[in-house]
Nucleic acid binder design. Structure first.
Lengths: 261, 261
DNA sequence: CGCTCCATCTCGGAC
DNA sequence: GTCCGAGGTGGAGCG
């Protein structure tokens, strides 16, 4: 019996079933009319209504309203979930420390309960991430600019991590910031922060070569950017390189579109 | 009957129950051994295992493994969820456009199903947010600096919104960026971006007064900041104002309301 | 443990 | 619709 369902459990049954589920490492789902309180990094209250409550064996606790992707209240794993009866009502309490916070659901009417002895050894395999985009650029720097040479990847600097430190055909340093999605002002900020290091001469590239005039180029690589971002780059002497598609196979010889200022 | 539970539904039953739930706007929960595919902004695959599947009437679809706070796969609201039988197995498919993406769960064994006709009119009331911190500062600017005067709140500038534009005791303009949590390098970036506007003279304060020497101060307000952030501020002539605690009427009112309960 | 940065970020607000 | 920034962001990766 992997899943056990109880219809409209009374408070006593709910509490004992919840305790058993927590003890045995099962996933508990409860459909209930309840009210919820959160206290921790902020504090909040949710009045009575029908919600789906989920408690996982790792201490995860979720309160889902009938709409919306995000739980209205939650507790990440690492803490503990407990059940008790209070004033004739079942109460589920999730707590953790660091930060210290708690979510408490007071259950007025439990419509359904399911205990789920789940086993899942699979891990999610994903592709199309920014890490893969980095690998592609490292293998094919010419999609950013003809003659561009990658010097360093993920260089730690005084003010943060630089995606790529490169040099163009004429040896001028190029700081490259890569985004998988449409670039935002914050992404422009990041590039600007890194470039300012080299402009101020507070960082020197590991290959020891410096452009004669001390110039440093900054290049933001992304599939798109709003007009405001493009203007910010332009106004600050930075460049935008449009890289919409990339091929992890490296066979397709992807045609990259570049926009230089 | 607010919730209806079916134990170990066969594929046909699962599909018809799912269709009925989607049609009637009920929340559907299924405990099942399944495999999942996502295709959209990235793409990914999750091999067979036991998961909790949740479909909401707004098109939200969640795939929860037995551990972890975040669903391993999901679809935000706005799209549609559908059910069908394929090769003798039940398949739940969630789709949306803008961006175009899909999550498909192929169900090998359904251990339990719950249809939940939930009604929830309550909205979550929260306090301790950054908006309340703004209100507090606006009413008590002296907590940042003696003699500081707030000139504008949430001023829209060429490159984004400035939390506060203020003037110090001697009339020098002060750009203030407020964070409720420990300040990060991105927060420093934001402040730097706003301050550079005034330094470049591309924005002028609405009160028309400018410091004799054109100086503009920049102040990052937060409960804490890492040493790297503090150094970035220092190196760029910006300031950090530690504001750990703040008190608001709203917070006090909420606390009173909660104790009433 | 802290720091930095990505995320299928989601969500809300403004325009 | 797009753009921008907050978030109880969460989570990975590295030192």
């Amino acid at each position: 019996m992997v899943a056990e369902q109880i219809d409209a459990p009374d408070p006593e049954t709910l509490v004992s079933e919840a305790k058993a589920a927590f003890r045995d490492g099962a996933v508990l789902s409860v459909q209930a009319r309840c009210e919820v309180e959160y206290d921790g990094r902020t504090s909040g209250h949710l009045g009575p209504g029908d919600r789906l409550l989920v408690a996982k064996p790792d201490g995860t606790f979720l309160v889902h309203q009938p709409t919306g992707h995000k739980p209205v209240n939650w507790m990440p794993g690492g803490g503990t979930v407990s059940a008790r009866e209070s004033d004739g009502e079942a109460v589920l309490l999730a707590r953790r420390t660091n930060p210290t916070e708690r979510v408490e659901a007071r259950i007025f009417d439990a419509h359904g309960l399911t205990r789920f002895d789940a086993t899942d050894g699979a891990t999610y395999e994903e592709s199309g991430t920014e890490a893969e985009m980095h690998e592609y650029i490292e293998r094919n720097p010419e999609v950013l600019e003809e003659g561009l040479r990658i010097v360093e990847h993920e260089r730690e600097s005084k003010y943060g991590f630089i995606d790529f430190f490169a040099r163009d055909e004429s040896g001028t340093p190029v700081v490259v910031e890569v985004k998988r999605i449409q670039a935002t002002l914050n992404h422009f900020d990041q590039l600007q922060r890194y470039v300012s290091l080299y402009e101020d001469g507070e960082e020197s590239p590991e290959d020891g070569v410096t452009a004669d005039d001390g110039t440093v180029r900054g290049m933001l690589v992304a599939p798109d950017a709003s007009e405001r971002v493009r203007r910010a780059l332009r106004d600050n002497g930075l460049e935008f390189a449009e890289l919409a598609e990339f091929d992890t196979d490296a066979k397709g010889a992807t045609e990259a579109k570049l926009t230089d200022f």
